[in-house]
Design a protein around this nucleic acid. Structure first.
Lengths: 173, 173
DNA sequence: TAACGCATGTAACAGGTTACATGATTTA
DNA sequence: TAAATCATGTAACCTGTTACATGCGTTA
């Protein structure tokens, strides 16, 4: 079984207590190249986890900022996470809307295809820049060797595909 | 809006009429590295497309094999597809259960992590082999330059990440 | 005789998305 | 004064997954 939002959130809380807002931030910065999350998934999941007693909620009142809820993992939650992390990994899933458009692009104009290339190239470049700037922040707080690999994987992926796109965009002119 | 199962199936039918079984085959062989489909999605989608009059169904009775339904796209279906293919592309999504496990692998034994690496390496190698053997079949029937790029993209992706995994697996020993 | 290829389908469910709703403080 | 940051939440919806059900002919 794949680790879903449920298990991923437990994994983050297993390191230290967090608010939903912070969980989103971690997901967006450190794991965004292999997992995607939205508030619309995070808050409902936290609510369910609390109902299942896998996490506990501590409400903090703040005056200058909105009140917040800090979630802490329970022993039961740790057991669920521990089981999930020990399960075999399942197949990676890539969904590329760009490649889908390219696959069916016979009827599109060269200009339209060129535009799609440009946009995808810009996205990859932005992702590389984001990952690389993230690495600096990350190294400051200390980073495990294994997390460094998830980073290297992302960079390798974006770099290799960017090269293919740039070459293809050139021959599309 | 991303091209979903609906639009992808229309895209395949836009080239020529097919059965659901054939659509699955095309998806599994040519597009499997950037889209994934199952019969559980294909058949219900075809049914909906028929109800919306975007495709028509022709029932073929066979004696030595199960009967089959051949679906043909309608003018309305072509209009829907044409609109979809002209829309801007949306962000690519990668979900890697392997990277997720690696990210949270602090508490796992070195052996367990090594096993995850082995399995992921084997998967990538299998995917490269599948894509490469597919290329041969593909070239025979004639392949557009653009489809060749979707292939190159897949190979580049798998090759680059495989290298990262092999290096990391070595230092994990 | 086991497995694979051909061939279709449904019902229940899970999981996540989208859109909406609120609102103070700080920074540019 | 516009935008960003902090901060939470729900309701409706969409899309796809999983499991089940069927069955003949051919190949290993």
């Amino acid at each position: 079984m794949t680790m879903k939002g449920r298990e991923v959130i437990l994994g983050i809380l297993q390191e230290s207590p967090h608010t939903g807002y912070e969980i989103n931030d971690i997901l967006q910065t450190r794991l965004s190249h292999f997992f995607d999350a939205t508030f619309g998934m995070i808050y409902p999941t936290l609510k369910k986890l609390e109902a299942e007693k896998l996490v506990t909620k501590q409400q903090i009142s703040q005056t200058d900022r909105p009140n917040k809820n800090i979630y802490t993992i329970t022993a039961a939650g740790q057991a669920v996470f521990s089981k999930a992390i020990n399960e075999p990994t399942s197949d990676e899933i890539l969904k590329s809307d760009f490649l889908m458009h390219l696959y069916f692009s016979q009827d599109l104009s060269t200009e339209q295809v060129a535009l799609f290339f440009q946009e995808e190239i810009a996205r990859k470049e932005a992702k590389i820049a984001a990952l690389q700037s993230q690495l600096a922040t990350w190294l400051e707080n200390g980073m495990t060797e294994q997390r460094k690999i998830t980073f290297d994987y992302g960079i390798a992926y974006y770099t290799a595909t960017l090269a293919v796109l740039k070459k293809a965009a050139k021959s599309n002119q």
